[in-house]
């Protein structure tokens, strides 16, 4: 193994998020020593208070941009990072907090805070890539720790990470899970959702919730028509696209289209 000082420097950054994705790194219990041997964990407040100053070879960025301050901070982080990888639905699509994008944030602050005038917040929660150049986006709410290790290993080897952008259906078929939509009539978001979780929910007889956001070429309109035939009502069909990846363009448009059709009919 190479000398400690020659290891690439890793930094982990947090924006508006629950910390779940960066904790996936600490969750890599069996591989954590190998991670620490391969890369210098230089800035990772969840793991250590010891911070090594930048610049950093690899920055993992969790969370979305929701404040003017964070919109500035991400530029500084980008400037200090040779490679910047965003991890999780917040960082790649704005997260669950992107539901604010469809509501009145000022009204929220008036209800929640005693002194709303102290709250400096943006009208929308947005992905990191909306603010700075991102070298790679790792999807998921939360991300898969296997995929995180793959991204770090790929970075170290200077290769493209193996994180296919096809549908969750391919993962079901690879593992031999019988399609819950066809065999049980369970509405499933799998055909429109990015692979990566390993198709966990259908393996437990549940439809996919879309945690990994839109797949590479989603067709939510056609999938939505089928959901309707399977008995899912308008509210449910709209809501399913308004979760962790509500801000991802394909899901945002799908929910808007379903909502608009609803208004037209009523």
């Amino acid at each position: 193994m190479s000398e400690a000082h020659s290891r690439p420097k890793l930094a982990v950054w947090k924006f508006a998020s629950c910390d779940g994705c960066q904790l996936s790194l600490l969750d890599c219990e069996d591989e954590l020593l190998a991670v620490a041997e391969a890369i210098e964990i230089a800035n990772f407040p969840e793991a250590s208070r010891a911070v090594v100053a930048g610049p950093y070879d690899l920055s993992l960025v969790e969370g979305s941009i929701t404040t003017p301050h964070d919109a500035e901070r991400i530029r500084d982080i980008r400037a200090q990072s040779k490679t910047l990888v965003t991890i999780g639905a917040c960082a790649t699509a704005g997260g669950i907090q992107a539901l604010r994008n469809f509501a009145d944030v000022e009204a929220f602050t008036r209800i929640v805070y005693a002194r709303p005038e102290y709250i400096a917040t943006l009208a929308e929660s947005t992905a990191i890539a909306d603010h700075v150049a991102v070298d790679f986006e790792l999807r998921g709410c939360p991300i898969s720790k296997t995929q995180l290790l793959e991204v770090i290993s790929a970075f170290l080897a200077g290769r493209r990470p193996v994180t296919p952008a096809h549908s969750v259906c391919v993962e079901c078929k690879l593992r031999g899970t019988v399609c819950v939509m066809v065999a049980q009539g369970t509405p499933c978001l799998g055909p429109a959702t990015h692979a990566g979780c390993g198709a966990i929910c259908p393996a437990y007889d549940r439809g996919c919730y879309g945690c990994f956001g839109p797949m590479e070429t989603p067709n939510p309109a056609a999938l939505d028509a089928r959901w309707g035939e399977l008995g899912a009502d308008r509210a449910r069909r709209e809501r399913v696209y308004r979760t962790f990846n509500a801000g991802a363009p394909a899901f945002r448009e799908a929910a808007a289209r379903i909502a608009a059709a609803d208004e037209e009919e009523s």
Binding site: S153, C169, V170, K173, G190
Partner: peptide, 23 residues
């Protein structure tokens, strides 16, 4: 079409594969 690939996965003659390298 959903481009979900289910038809090709269940087809008994579809044989296409890809190759993935991991380190």
């Amino acid at each position: 079409c959903l481009s979900c690939a289910n038809c090709t996965m269940v087809c008994p003659t579809c044989f296409c594969t890809t190759v993935e390298d991991v380190t």
